[in-house]
Computed example of a mutant assay.
Amino acid sequence: MTDFSNSTLLVTGANGNLGRIVVEELLARGAKHIVAGTRDTAALAGFADRGVDVRRLDFDDAASLQSAFAGVDRALIISTVAANRTEQQSAAIAAAKAAGVSYLAYTSAPNARPNADAGGIADHYWTEVAIAASGLDFTLLRNHIYADMTIVGAGSALASGQLFEATGGKGRNYVTRADAARAAAGALLTATGKQILDITGPAPVQQAEVAALYTKLTGKQVTAVTLTGEQLLGGLQAAGVPSFMAQLLVAFDLDAAQGHHAVVTDAVKQLTGREPESLEAFLTANKAALAG
């Protein structure tokens, strides 16, 4: 297996929940030259104290992209959450190529495609196209929905006793954010060539099973309630979820209903050397968070 631990490795969005874990994993796996890109360099002072090169990186600031990618061999672009993220990420790809970066990893989504019904997922498709067109080597990490999101959604489900969803009873293969981050670090450290990988958990889980886990771990009865996409979108917007995020969440549910989230791969083990954590194990370990 190729070892790039002596290469200069950049992580964008390094102050985010995923980015921080990626940097920690790179440190743990012996990376010698880590660059952490963030809009707020002060927030990563702790990494700087540990030898990480912390650089300002703002996807909307061309000058910061140029300086952040300077001297970098391999980079992980963590997808942004913005209405203009296709433009943001295309600018980052162009800056990487101009700086002489040889390899890009990118955190994408399952079944990335340009269709109008894809919602924010279309942004991932066009970013993938830009990466492929760059001529650089790459790994497109199609991260399936994070197991961590089931904790975010637990509050309203436990309060109402109902878990609203539009997956049509189909399963989705939750992957923990930590497993996805460790896989991304593994790609930076070892991947070669050009590849697309679905980053998944060990097995698909239906929403009725998620509701049953909530019940089992808290003692509060929760039942899954299947809605249409339109009904779910209306409910999310009525609850105050921003339109962009509500549309993205509904698009994910509708993709699951078509079976796109039931994929099972060994990509996590391939890139990390360890089996991915199951949703049940994750929720059991985070049982206290369900109550809070």
Rank of each mutant, 00 (worst) to 15 (best):
D266I: 10
A256D: 10
H260P: 00
A251S: 15
A251D: 14
G273C: 03
A267R: 01
L279Q: 01
L279M: 01
V250I: 11
H261L: 11
A281M: 01
V263H: 06
V250N: 11
G259E: 13
A281V: 12
A256I: 14
Q258N: 06
L283I: 06
E275C: 03
L249N: 09
A251R: 04
T272I: 07
R274D: 00
E277S: 10
G273P: 01
L283H: 11
V263S: 12
R274K: 11
G259M: 12
K269Y: 03
A267C: 02
P276S: 01
L254K: 14
V268F: 10
E280G: 02
L254V: 13
A256Y: 13
K269G: 13
A281D: 06
Q258K: 15
L248A: 10
V250P: 07
V263R: 14
E280A: 11
V268C: 06
F282Q: 01
V264F: 00
V263M: 12
F282M: 00
A262F: 06
G273I: 13
S278Y: 00
L271S: 09
D266M: 07
R274S: 13
G273H: 05
Q270Y: 07
L283Q: 02
E277I: 15
L254R: 14
L283Y: 02
A267Y: 02
E275S: 05
L254Q: 15
V263L: 10
E275Q: 03
V263A: 10
A257S: 15
H260W: 13
A256K: 13
D255P: 00
L249T: 10
A267E: 07
R274C: 05
D255T: 02
A251M: 09
F252P: 03
A281Q: 04
A262S: 15
G259A: 15
V250K: 12
A267I: 05
L248S: 07
T272V: 05
H260T: 12
V264L: 07
L249F: 07
A257M: 10
E275M: 05
L249D: 04
E277M: 14
T272L: 01
S278R: 00
Q258G: 01
V263T: 13
L248C: 03
L249H: 04
V250W: 07
T265L: 07
A257N: 09
V268G: 12
D266T: 15
G259D: 12
D255K: 06
G273V: 08
F252L: 15
D266P: 03
L279R: 03
V263E: 10
Q258C: 05
E280I: 06
V264A: 05
A257E: 10
S278C: 01
L254I: 13
H261M: 12
L254N: 09
L283T: 03
F252D: 15
R274W: 01
F252Y: 14
V268W: 06
G259Y: 15
K269L: 09
A262K: 04
D266W: 08
L271A: 08
Q270H: 08
V250C: 08
L248G: 03
P276C: 01
L254F: 13
S278P: 00
P276D: 00
H260L: 11
L249Y: 09
P276N: 00
E275K: 04
G259R: 14
V263K: 11
L271G: 02
F282A: 02
E280C: 03
K269E: 08
D266S: 12
T272S: 07
A281K: 02
H260K: 15
E277F: 05
L283R: 10
K269C: 11
F282R: 00
H260G: 02
V250E: 08
Q258M: 06
D266C: 02
L271M: 08
T272F: 08
